[in-house]
Amino acid sequence: MVVERLSKTWFNLVHGRNIVYNQCWEDPRLDRVALELTPQDRVVVITSAGCNALDYALAGAGHVHAVDMNSKQNHLLELKQVGLKHLDYPTFWKLFGKGSLPEWNEVYPSLLRPNLTSDARKFWDHKGILFRQGRRKSFYFRCTSGTFAWFVNYYVDRVAKMRDAVNALLAAENVEQQKSLFEQYDLAKKLWKPMIKFAMRRDVTLSLLGVPRAQRRQIDEGYPGGILQFVMDRVEAVFTKIPLKDNYAWRVYLTGEYSPEACPEYLKQDNFERLKNGVANQVSRHTNTMQGFLEGQSEPITRFILLDHMDWLSKDPAKKILTAEWQAIVDRAAPNARVLWRSAGLDGTFINPIEVSIDGKKKTLKEILSYNDRLANELHPQDRVHTYGSFCIADIRR
């Protein structure tokens, strides 16, 4: 219990006043297939960095509600939306494609600041340094998850001295080349030195990645070899089994920037024009819990994207929060609403025993969720991020 309290205290210190995620760590290409979005869809998603909320709007959703307890994540999404509306494409690309805008002091006061809400303005008045070059050259080497990426790059460049190998992998034309290069450079041995193995077992390190102890426990209890082996296996799979050519999630953390060929959809020039011309307005921001947001809504929701946050609530006493959240989901769900979520655990159906009330009767989630295991099992191995143990797609049947 002492370890649990210390871990929670550290996690809160790390994340309490920070942008935690400077890019989304879920692959929206899978979500587009699973969600089958139409203009009739009303979507709710946990904001994270906002990349995927914009992606769902581009994919054709009628409206996307981006909800996050951390107001800073919504400030980041707001900066993207304001930038889309008021910047030209080259400037926007510098800001979020390169992660660095040297002319921030000229662009921000004239084009961005006047169009931000008061809370976001107060935040970015003090946080413009995140986009100005310094010892850390990029926004993607800053914030909480970016700090971890910066340490990784320091290790790659200064300790393991494997930058040539990483660059060769990112330039590879196919998976076969990647696998050959991985073996040629003996990356498994170079990467997993004792100091890295030690660090990956520490709650301090995992906190920088936004992994709370409850989620870490899920992996330790369910994965052979625990958290360290899970990470080692996932990294090797990314380098040897999944094409890196368009894997923007890993590219940006290994280089500090995206490339035109490997970037989120909102950063592509054609999509930039669509977003500027109104699509970005189809995304609204809400600083709230998922439960709180849903309880304040009267409009039915057709699509719910819960990321991996249910892992955080998987152990007592937090399970009560998860139960209340699912009651709110069921209460606001349109007929045949669809829910997506990911889990660090190998079985995302750990939520099945949760009971909710429908028409005055108690039912378990197992009774009302119709899982599309075939599609989930087909999509999950294609996940470019590849850091989750399971992926679930389910329709709510009353």
Rank of each mutant, 00 (worst) to 15 (best):
V3T: 11
L13Y: 10
V14A: 10
G16L: 11
G16A: 14
Y21F: 15
Y21G: 01
N22M: 06
Q23T: 13
C24K: 01
W25Y: 10
L37G: 04
L37I: 02
T38D: 04
Q40N: 14
V44A: 15
I46E: 04
N52L: 03
D55A: 15
G60Q: 14
H63R: 15
V64C: 08
S71F: 09
K72Y: 13
Q73S: 12
H75F: 14
Y89N: 05
F96C: 03
G99V: 02
S100Y: 01
E103R: 09
E103F: 01
Y108G: 04
L112I: 13
N115K: 15
H126T: 12
H126G: 07
L130Q: 14
F131L: 05
R132L: 05
Q133Y: 03
V152E: 13
N153T: 08
D157M: 12
V159Q: 11
N167F: 09
Q178K: 10
Q178L: 08
L181D: 09
Q184K: 15
K189G: 04
W192F: 15
I196M: 15
F198L: 15
M200I: 08
V204C: 04
T205Y: 12
T205D: 07
L206S: 10
L206T: 06
L208Y: 15
G210K: 13
V211E: 10
I219K: 10
Y223I: 02
G225H: 13
F230L: 06
F230K: 08
V231G: 02
M232C: 09
D233L: 09
V235A: 08
V235N: 02
K241Y: 02
L244S: 07
Y248S: 11
Y248G: 04
R251H: 09
R251K: 13
T255A: 03
G256Y: 05
P260I: 05
A262H: 13
P264D: 10
Y266S: 06
D270N: 15
F272H: 07
E273V: 10
L275C: 06
N277C: 06
N281S: 14
T287V: 14
Q291A: 11
G292L: 09
L294G: 09
G296I: 06
E299S: 11
S314C: 05
L322A: 12
Q327M: 00
A328D: 08
I329A: 08
V330D: 11
R332M: 00
A333H: 03
A333C: 03
R338G: 00
D347I: 00
D347K: 10
T349M: 05
N352G: 00
E355C: 00
E355R: 13
I358T: 00
I358D: 02
K362G: 00
K362A: 03
K363M: 06
K366P: 00
L369I: 00
L369A: 01
S370R: 12
Y371P: 02
A376Q: 06
N377T: 03
H380A: 13
P381N: 07
D383L: 03
R384C: 04
V385C: 05
G389R: 11
S390F: 03
S390M: 05
I396P: 01
R397D: 02
R398A: 05
